[in-house]
Every structure is written in structure tokens, then in C-alpha cells.
């Protein structure tokens, strides 16, 4: 690695991001504004997550990147290669061997430990944004803990569809205070937000960083008579037979054929004894 500072960003930028991360950890679920930089990849490709990872990585880390559970899709491969180039850190595809995991839209199936940091790529950090487009208003709502709008939205879901129809980016309340968008993870992953690992969220275009410290209470919103249901496809993985993992539907031909397989490729490979 020559011509780049360690982890690509200059030191002053890293300090600014690090200060935002620490305030985020101190105020669980609160979105801390930060001066997001242009990264050598387009917005929407994980620039927020990349900046958080760059501020967190040390030369001793083993870094894993997943895109919807998979280590070998374009986004994951590009980001992994980027950090190989600018930090020289070891990389891995095994969840249990990684110390820092950057993720796009999944939480690994293998339970995380205290020694791990999970970095989420976040497109829209504001859970209320599609209900109230004005930042001035949503900021006031968070300040006053006025989250009635979201409950009305979930209620209308039930009135129209008979169930809460939000399947991903399912809103949560953190430490009984801030409403938080867990990024577009499937709601199946929501129970895993209560974790021994440090969870950091970075939204590059929207310039927000937030965090969930270890063992923090994270409650998925629901109603007494319509409790939260972390549903998934009701069948086992066609490759490894797992019944407890989130499944992707894969189209296999043009006559309606399909199969359901684990979205977490490392989990699936490990169960089949083929771990990389």
C-alpha cells in the first residue's frame, strides 16, 4: 500500500467520524450528523459503511464483507478489495473468524460475540422519512419522542392488509427512547439486533451515523393483539437443510421453477462442511 493513508481517509476525517461514532454509542439509536466524504464509489454502494469501517479498522483486524448475506456479490467483493488495498488487513469469509463485519442488509446467522463489530450500510437512516419528508419535523419528533405517526402507519397496514406489511427495515425502538431504522435487513433479523457485538450504522449520502451498543434493548414495534412476527419462507434450505436461517428464493428456469437457499452463504457452506 503506497500513496494512501492507512484506511484511505485522512486523519482529520477519521477523527471527525470517530467522534460521531462515540456520541452515537453514548446515545443509542440517535442519528449523529457527520460530514460524510466522497468515497471512490457511488452513493448507494455503502459509502457510509465504508467510512465507518475505515474509522474503526486496525491492522490486527480480520475483515468480512457481506451483501445480503453473501460474501461474493459485486458490492461485497469491491469493498473487501478496497480495504485490502488501503489497509492490508486480513480478510475472511467466515463469520466466526471476523473481527469487523461490514454488511449490506443482513445480520449473519452465526451468533456474534463481544469481540466483533458489525458495520451496517444504511440508505435512509430516518425511520419516519417516508411518513414525514421534512427533516425539521422528524428531528422535532425524535426530540419529543413523538412516534405516533409510525404506530398509525402500522395500524393502517393491519386495517388494509390484515397484518403489518413491513417486511424489511422494520422500525425498532432502542433503549426505550429513540425510534431507529435498522437498515433494510429483513424483519427476520430484528431479534438479532440485541447482540453482544457493537453495532454501528453509517449512512453516507444522508450523512448520519448511529449505533447500538452491546446488550442494548431493541424492541420491534407492534401491538398487543398483533405481536411482531419475524417471519421467513416456511421451508428448509434446499442446499443445507437449515430450518432456522433466512432464505432467498432463486429462480431456476423460465417455467416457474425455483428453490429456496440460505441467504447467508458462509452459514450454508459451513453446515455443508464446505467453509472457505
Amino acid at each position: 500500500m503506497t500513496g494512501y493513508n492507512f484506511a484511505y481517509l485522512d486523519e482529520q476525517t477519521k477523527r471527525m467520524i470517530r467522534r460521531a461514532i462515540l456520541k452515537g454509542v453514548a446515545i443509542p439509536g440517535y442519528q449523529v450528523p457527520f460530514a460524510s466524504r466522497e468515497m471512490p464509489m457511488p452513493y448507494g454502494w455503502g459509502t457510509g459503511g465504508v467510512q465507518v469501517s475505515a474509522a474503526v479498522l486496525t491492522p490486527d483486524d480480520r475483515f468480512k464483507v457481506i451483501d445480503q448475506g453473501s460474501d461474493d456479490t459485486t458490492n461485497a467483493v469491491s469493498i473487501r478489495k478496497f480495504f485490502q488495498k488501503v489497509t492490508d488487513v486480513e480478510t475472511t469469509e467466515r463469520t466466526c473468524a471476523a473481527t469487523v463485519i461490514q454488511t449490506r442488509h443482513r445480520i449473519p446467522e452465526t451468533p456474534l460475540t463481544e469481540d466483533q463489530i458489525l458495520v451496517y450500510q444504511v440508505p435512509i437512516p430516518e425511520p419516519l422519512r417516508f411518513l414525514e419528508p421534512r427533516e425539521t419535523e422528524t428531528r422535532k419528533m425524535h426530540a419529543l419522542e413523538e412516534y405516533g405517526l409510525m404506530h398509525v402507519k402500522l395500524y393502517e397496514d393491519i386495517a388494509r392488509n390484515g397484518a403489518i406489511s413491513t417486511a424489511y427495515a422494520y422500525p425498532v425502538q432502542v433503549h426505550d427512547r429513540y425510534m431507529m431504522d435498522p437498515s433494510p435487513i429483513p424483519k427476520f433479523d430484528n431479534p438479532k439486533l440485541e447482540s453482544p457485538a457493537i453495532q454501528l450504522f453509517g449512512a453516507g449520502r444522508e450523512q448520519r451515523i448511529y449505533a447500538v451498543p452491546p446488550y442494548t434493548q431493541v424492541v420491534s414495534l407492534d401491538f398487543e393483539d398483533y405481536p411482531f412476527d419475524p417471519s421467513k419462507a416456511e421451508r428448509p434450505c434446499a442446499l443445507c437443510g437449515a430450518t432456522d436461517s433466512y432464505l432467498d428464493e432463486v429462480i431456476t428456469d423460465d417455467r416457474g421453477g425455483c428453490m429456496f437457499v440460505c441467504s447467508d452463504t458462509d452459514y450454508c457452506a459451513e453446515r455443508r462442511g464446505e467453509a472457505a
Binding site: N5, F6, A7, E11, K14, R15, R18, I21, L22, V25, A26, A55, V56, L57, T58, P59, I198, A211, P213, P214
Partner: peptide, 19 residues
């Protein structure tokens, strides 16, 4: 070595604040 030393120092500061 500022970038490396600061990375380790921040990690300690992050772990402390998170726990």
C-alpha cells in the same frame, strides 16, 4: 505512527464507551 497508533487508541476508546 499517527494513523496506526490512533486506530488502536480509538478502538480502545470505542470498546470502553460501548461497555
Amino acid at each position: 505512527d499517527a494513523p496506526i497508533d490512533a486506530a488502536y487508541a480509538f478502538r480502545a476508546a470505542l470498546h470502553a464507551m460501548a461497555r
